[in-house]
């Protein structure tokens, strides 16, 4: 199917959900369920991702800045700034495009090919506001929360790596981090995470909701959902950086 037709289908899906948006309250339990699945259940992997990317960045930055002229605290500034404005949002969203995106797309795809979506519609449900909208709202709410966790644990991982490798003491790292800290950076990161949350969940819902052709079809749509999710996250990252910075 041509990209334009696909985009039309995607918009149509969202329209169908928004049309019965008032009912989303009826499906509160679905939303709670999604908040738990997207947020709570992704926390461990996001914390891990944060710690490791912060640690690796610290070690690499200190390796690149081996000069007596540059104060060591600069490492802390660079690492914390990069985590807050870029890495925490993008890296965790890429991880979540795999974890959350695949889960959503497989769930909906299986419901589609086993006629569960038809069954919902046949009972009088708006299957989109029942299934899709809670998942997208869940993503929009939880990605920013996960971003904050990734950023905090990323900086923590950076401090730890600095101390363990002997590159710089924790106090100097934090001093550097504080010197160049702007609250606006966090806002920027939160906006990015919100947009990424929308992108990952809505694409996964779209691919899953329109899956066809049995188990293989569900596999195909899940692969598409994760790949497209990653691509659009990166694209959106570029666009947001151009607009907002």
């Amino acid at each position: 199917m041509s990209p334009l037709r696909q985009f039309g289908e995607y918009c149509n899906l969202l329209y169908k959900g928004v049309r019965s948006a008032t009912e989303v309250g009826m499906y509160r339990s679905n939303l709670t369920n999604e908040l738990v699945k997207i947020g709570y259940e992704s926390m461990p992997i996001i914390i891990l991702t944060g710690i490791f990317s912060g640690a690796v960045m610290t070690i690499q930055t200190s390796y690149q800045l081996q000069s007596a002229l540059i104060p060591k605290s600069t490492i802390g500034s660079i690492v914390s700034k990069s985590m807050i404005i870029e890495l925490a949002a993008v890296v965790s969203s890429l991880v979540l495009a795999g974890k959350v995106g695949a889960r959503i797309s497989t769930e909906l795809g299986t419901m589609r090919v086993s006629e569960q979506i038809d069954a919902l519609e046949s009972m009088g449900f708006n299957s989109v506001s029942f299934l899709v909208i809670p998942r997208i709202i869940g993503g929009i709410i939880m990605f920013p929360v996960l971003y904050l966790a990734a950023a905090a644990f990323g900086i923590g991982g950076g401090v730890l790596a600095g101390v363990v490798s002997g590159a710089l003491p924790a106090s100097e790292f934090m001093e550097g981090a504080r010197t160049f800290f702007h609250p606006a950076d966090v806002l920027f990161g939160l906006i990015k995470a919100t947009v990424f949350g929308y992108i990952v969940t809505s694409i996964a819902c779209y691919k899953g909701y329109y899956a066809t052709g049995g188990a293989e079809g569900v596999g195909t749509s899940t692969t598409r959902a994760t790949v497209l999710g990653c691509i659009y996250v990166l694209l959106a990252d570029l666009i947001l950086a151009t607009i907002l910075l």
Partner: peptide, 16 residues
Amino acid sequence: IRQRFGVLFQGSALFD
């Protein structure tokens, strides 16, 4: 209108 129908799907279509 759909709410006036009951449907048994061929593959049962139970919510798993």
